[in-house]
Structure formats: structure tokens, C-alpha cells
Design a protein around this nucleic acid. Structure first.
Lengths: 126, 126, 126, 126
DNA sequence: GTGGTCTAGACCACC
DNA sequence: GTGGTCTAGACCACG
């Protein structure tokens, strides 16, 4: 499982991890029922504090996206993909709405907003 | 000068103040060479600590948007409006680009992105 | 890390700290990627308030010389040394130019200026 | 009498005034026994607070460079020119020494210092 | 443990 | 009156 963290980001590390796992589930990169790396392994791989990894996993458990297989570790739950896809869409919808709201509040004219949104670069991911 | 603070926001108070002043300059609500409220006045008006206001003002000074008139207070510098307008545009351009980048990284399909951006509600500010 | 403060100086304490760290980076006394003393440690060492230290560090962060490792502390960024060396040179160049400008404005004759600059004592630092 | 002040300078206005008068005396722009502008006139001319002008004049009086002519105003004292010339030289000597000291303390190499001092632009005053 | 934010209030120089 | 600096100490999120 490929996860990358930016230790200088203002986004907490545990959130970076959780987000990337959520999106991986939504994208099908990890399948339902599949195991995710153990807290120890992932922590070692990313050279971060195990508490941080554990906190990310706790978040995902609370959302029902992963669950404990006694003695084995954590696995993606059945139905997680659908949840993640909905989450993902909602997340970006809210984000976009926030963007528009803030632009309006800052007295940007509609033309300026349109201009910004038009010359977006359609870059490929990664 | 009308400034509004949301103490529950995750954005620090001093940044909220700085942002609103920047946008006020960009919008022409405060003119160049005009004095902005004194640290003590604004602090009283917003019922916050003077240090918090002072920190917002220090930010703006560092950006060259306001400058000290010793013993008199702080005044919007000449050229500040142009800087703020550019800043504002750049700010939202980057924000929008970040939105697109993150969407791409999360493997959202182009159709999903377009769908999100189409049913935006053109709500009026405030 | 050795930092010395002169509380009687007209230069603010937080600037004294920032300056000494900048010069330490330029001189290679602290290396890139190395951690600098924690806010609490340095404050205790200098017997000053943590806020004062924090303000010095914030300055350096704004200049991109040090960056936050969340939960760990602050580390010198890669590239900081080069920036500091350039900064340092520019700083003294400007200072020297200011000196010459002011001398000229005060109608000092070229002979007087030369005389001042010749009998400089080449004293060793500290 | 031509005096120019920079309200945004970090140097206090009263010092800017005092400095310029001292240097004008040293340069012979104002002669001994000559009257200098009244507090009211200079304040109006520079659009500054009369207290500020008065403070500058008080400084110069304390140094014996100007003195009260009852009922007439303030005049440059006899011998002021010589004092100012000495002051001026001392002032720039100290300034230059401070420059060298600080450069040494910041671990600038002798070569760097020499380099800075060589490519000085010999610009004409004003 | 780390830094970041905020409050409260003192003291200073300047105008 | 103005802002700038500094101290003291609380609270928070993060690792």
C-alpha cells in the first residue's frame, strides 16, 4: 500500500494517512475484505510515531471503513467502497462550495471567478 | 471599518482580521493613505486582546500593505490596493488549483469533478 | 547552540535571536535538517519568556529558514544556508551603502570619508 | 532652510530634524549667528506636531548648538560649526566601527568584507 | 514532549 | 493619544 506523507504540511499526519486510505478504498486500489498494513509496519515504513498511525486507523474504524479481524489485523469492511465514494464526493462538493463562498465574501467579481476557473490546468494525477 | 470575527473558526483570529483588511483594501472599502482603526479601538470593538489585533497589523506591515505613522497610527500604503488585488486573485487561483489537484490525486473521474462544479449555488455573500 | 542576548540593546530580543540563528546557519554552525532548540529550552536558557523566543522562530519560519516538524520541533530547512549567506552579504552591502549615502548627504568630503575608513581597527570578534 | 523628513522611517522625527540641522551647520549651509525657523513655522512647513519640532530644538540647545535670543527666536551659536564638524566625524567613525564589528561577529570573512567595501557606488548626494 | 494561539497587563518611545 | 516589546500563564492539537 502506497502512502506518502508530508511532515511539513499543515494537515496533521494522521489525517493525511486517513485521507489517502479513504481515497484508496474509493478508487478500488484496496479492495473490500483486504488487509491493510499493521500499525507497526506502516509506522516503520513512514518513519512516524506508531501513535500517529494508530490514530488514523481509529478514525477509519469509527467510520466503519475498516474493522478488526481478531489476531490478524485490520481489514477493509464490506460496503466501505460505496461509503468512501459518497464521502469523497461530499468532501469535494463542500470544498468547492467553500471556495465559492469565500470568493464571494471577498468581493471577487463573477468575471474574476469565472476567469480563475477557466484557465485551470488539467494536469494528470501524480 | 467593519470587521467580523468568528471565534469558533479554525482560522486564527489574527488571520481573519488580516484577511478582511486585505480584502477591504482590494475592494476599495479603505483607501490608500487612509488610517486603519487603532489597535486599542479595534480590540475593544471586537472584544479581543490588543496583542491579537497587533499581530494582525504586524502581518500586514510585513507585507507592506500598511505602514507606521509614528505616534499617529497605521495607514494604508500607496500601491496597497494593487498588491491586494493581485494577492487576492493569486490566492483564489492557488486555492482552486489545489482543489483540482487533490481531486485528481483522489482518483475522482473528470465527470464527477464536472458534476460537482456545475451545480454550484450562486449565493449572495452574507 | 550558543546564543547570547543583550537585554539593554535597543535591538529587540527576538531580533537578536533571529539574527544569531541566521548567522549560525550561514556560518554552518547549525546544519541543514538539524533541529534547533525547543522554544521552552531556549527560553529557559536565556531566562526570557517563551513568547519572545517563539516570535524569533516565527520570523525565521516566515523567511523559510526553519520549518515545523509537527510534534517534534523546528528544523533548519534544506537550502537555508545558501539563503542565509546571500542574506548576510546583502545585509552588510546595504548597511555599507547606507553609511556612504548618509555621509554624502551630510556633506562629508571624500577625504574625510576615506580617512574614517582607513584607520579601521581590524579587531578580532568577541 | 531645507529639511526633509520621512514619516515612515524608524528614526524618530525629532532626531531626523536635529541631525539635518547639525549637518547643515557643519556644512556651512546655515552660518553661526543665523536664525533658524521658529517652532511654529517649521512645524507648519513639515506638517508635524509642534512638540516634535520643539523636542528637536531642545536637543540642539542642550548641546549648545543653538541658543535663545529673547524675543527673537533661536540662533546658531558661535562655535557651533566646529562642534558639529567634530560631532559629525565622530558619528561616522563610530558608525563605521560598528559596521566592522558586526560583520566580524557574523563571521563574515575578511575577503567578503573587502569585497563589499570595494564595489561601493560613489553616488553624488541628493 | 513539541509549537501555536490567545488573554491580561506592564512598560517604553514617540507625537 | 499611537504602536512595539516583553512577561506570565492558560489552553489547544499533534506526535
Amino acid at each position: 500500500m502506497f502512502i506518502e506523507i508530508d511532515p511539513t504540511s499543515s494537515q496533521p499526519i494522521f489525517e493525511q494517512i486517513a485521507m489517502q486510505i479513504r481515497f484508496a478504498i474509493a478508487a478500488g486500489t484496496v479492495r473490500e475484505e483486504e488487509m491493510i498494513p499493521s500499525v507497526r509496519d506502516l509506522s516503520k515504513q513512514l518513519t512516524i510515531n506508531p501513535n500517529t498511525t494508530a490514530r488514523a486507523y481509529r478514525l477509519l474504524q469509527d467510520e466503519g471503513l475498516i474493522s478488526l479481524r481478531r489476531g490478524m489485523g485490520l481489514a477493509v469492511t464490506v460496503g466501505a467502497k460505496e461509503i468512501c465514494r459518497r464521502q469523497r464526493k461530499l468532501f469535494f462538493q463542500q470544498k468547492f462550495q467553500l471556495f465559492l463562498d469565500e470568493a464571494a465574501r471577498s468581493r471577487l467579481s463573477q468575471e474574476e471567478i469565472d476567469e480563475i476557473m477557466e484557465n485551470r490546468k488539467c494536469q494528470t494525477p501524480f
